[in-house]
Design a protein around this nucleic acid. Structure first.
Lengths: 132, 132
DNA sequence: CCTTGACCTTCCAGTTACTGGAAGCCCAAT
DNA sequence: ATTGGGCTTCCAGTAACTGGAAGGTCAAGG
């Protein structure tokens, strides 16, 4: 099938599929006589795997690792679980960071009256607070 | 003062200060006879403002907007508050997205026994689930 | 006076993960 | 024959820096 079909079945945009090929995340697709890339069901399955892994926030490099684990029938499930849990920890770190920002901002906005007057604690804090 | 001093007082790395200058976030610094950039307390104050805004997750473009609001003595505090609240909403959107990933991953890892056996629900879900 | 080391300068390149766009070929249908 | 998609490659741009090379400046020590 053409790249457009693979896109439809996998959810990965054509441009992104070509990009993945260019960085070696997926092997170079076969070609038809026309020069068009040719995909089969197995290729689409791989693309779907990649699409899901990316949507769970795994970096492309991590997806490459997961693909390897996926193809290695002899790997221990503990290896996969370790990768997943490390990623969860990273996600939790990001959430904590964002939550800190959110709290600080909400605190600042609560103290800003938000009317037509010019004085604003938000800017004052950004300008002068010793903490941050 | 030299750029190194400005870095020490503002928390913004020298390379980043030069970068901010190159993109126009801050005006070009004055120069000494030697060609070294020369900063004063006001410059450092601006850099600290930028540093804090960035640490709260504002994009550089948004920081530029905040700097303008900061310098505009006649702006309404409501304008500043609107920017801050919009940013809070964006942060909350990101947190929700990350939390969704986290939940899914924790669900998968709970179902993976994580021992030396090769079968692993994590990879199986990535490979085959219809949802994701 | 000379050297040493820290600090400064500019410029180029790399990072992450795509995405947009231009120029041009291929294919099916009218 | 011509239209309209879909496909090809390649170049460039995005966000926000960061690393590194080559070389100028400055203050201190001998």
């Amino acid at each position: 099938m053409n790249i457009g079909q693979a896109t439809g079945l996998s959810g990965v945009p054509a441009k992104t599929i070509r990009y993945y090929e260019s960085i070696g995340l997926i092997p170079a697709a076969g070609r038809k006589a026309s020069g068009y890339r040719d995909y089969d069901r197995k290729d689409v399955e791989t693309l779907r795997f990649i699409h899901r892994a990316r949507s769970l926030g795994f970096a492309v490099k991590e997806v490459a690792d997961l693909l390897e684990l996926w193809r290695d029938r002899s790997r221990a499930s503990a290896d996969v679980k370790a990768v997943a849990l490390a990623h969860v920890a990273e996600i939790e770190r990001k959430i904590a960071e964002l939550d800190g920002m959110r709290r600080t901002l909400l605190d600042l906005t609560r103290r800003c009256h938000g009317d037509t007057r010019p004085d604003c604690p938000i800017l004052e804090e950004l300008a002068g607070a010793e903490k941050g």
